[in-house]
Deep mutational scan, measured.
Amino acid sequence: VTLFVALYDYEARTEDDLSAHKGEKFQILNSSEGDWWEARSLTTGETGYIPSNYVAPV
Results as ranks from 00 to 15, higher is better:
residue 56 A to P: 01
residue 29 L to D: 04
residue 29 L to N: 04
residue 4 F to C: 09
residue 54 Y to K: 07
residue 40 R to S: 03
residue 10 Y to T: 02
residue 3 L to A: 05
residue 55 V to H: 01
residue 5 V to M: 08
residue 6 A to G: 02
residue 18 L to E: 00
residue 14 T to M: 10
residue 5 V to H: 04
residue 7 L to S: 01
residue 4 F to P: 00
residue 51 P to N: 09
residue 17 D to Q: 15
residue 8 Y to A: 09
residue 38 E to S: 07
residue 14 T to V: 06
residue 35 D to V: 09
residue 57 P to Y: 05
residue 23 G to L: 03
residue 7 L to R: 01
residue 35 D to Q: 10
residue 25 K to P: 05
residue 5 V to F: 10
residue 58 V to M: 11
residue 40 R to N: 01
residue 56 A to R: 09
residue 13 R to L: 10
residue 15 E to C: 14
residue 39 A to W: 05
residue 33 E to K: 14
residue 55 V to L: 15
residue 58 V to H: 07
residue 40 R to K: 11
residue 44 T to H: 03
residue 34 G to I: 10
residue 16 D to L: 14
residue 10 Y to W: 15
residue 27 Q to Y: 14
residue 38 E to V: 15
residue 33 E to G: 13
residue 12 A to Q: 06
residue 44 T to D: 02
residue 11 E to M: 11
residue 53 N to E: 10
residue 43 T to M: 10
residue 21 H to S: 12
residue 56 A to F: 08
residue 21 H to F: 15
residue 30 N to S: 11
residue 53 N to D: 09
residue 22 K to V: 12
residue 13 R to A: 11
residue 19 S to I: 05
residue 23 G to C: 08
residue 18 L to W: 02
residue 2 T to L: 13
residue 25 K to G: 04
residue 15 E to P: 14
residue 17 D to V: 12
residue 43 T to K: 10
residue 54 Y to G: 06
residue 45 G to N: 07
residue 16 D to H: 15
residue 35 D to K: 08
residue 19 S to E: 05
residue 47 T to V: 14
residue 50 I to Q: 01
residue 6 A to M: 09
residue 3 L to I: 15
residue 46 E to L: 14
residue 16 D to E: 12
residue 41 S to V: 02
residue 17 D to E: 15
residue 33 E to A: 13
residue 9 D to M: 06
residue 8 Y to G: 05
residue 57 P to C: 08
residue 10 Y to S: 01
residue 12 A to T: 04
residue 29 L to G: 02
residue 16 D to P: 03
residue 4 F to M: 08
residue 51 P to T: 03
residue 21 H to T: 13
residue 23 G to K: 01
residue 44 T to C: 03
residue 44 T to I: 02
residue 2 T to Q: 13
residue 48 G to T: 05
residue 53 N to W: 15
residue 52 S to W: 12
residue 10 Y to D: 00
residue 1 V to G: 13
residue 8 Y to N: 05
residue 55 V to T: 03
residue 56 A to W: 09
residue 36 W to Y: 13
residue 45 G to H: 06
residue 3 L to E: 08
residue 49 Y to A: 04
residue 54 Y to A: 14
residue 22 K to A: 11
residue 9 D to T: 06
residue 23 G to V: 01
residue 3 L to N: 04
residue 4 F to I: 05
residue 8 Y to H: 07
residue 10 Y to F: 15
residue 42 L to D: 03
residue 47 T to L: 07
residue 44 T to Q: 02
residue 55 V to E: 00
residue 17 D to P: 01
residue 49 Y to K: 13
residue 23 G to P: 00
residue 34 G to C: 13
residue 44 T to L: 02
residue 11 E to I: 13
residue 37 W to E: 00
residue 50 I to G: 01
residue 23 G to D: 05
residue 12 A to M: 04
residue 51 P to R: 08
residue 35 D to Y: 14
residue 13 R to Y: 07
residue 35 D to C: 14
residue 37 W to D: 01
residue 44 T to W: 03
residue 36 W to S: 07
residue 15 E to H: 11
residue 40 R to H: 04
residue 15 E to A: 13
residue 58 V to Q: 06
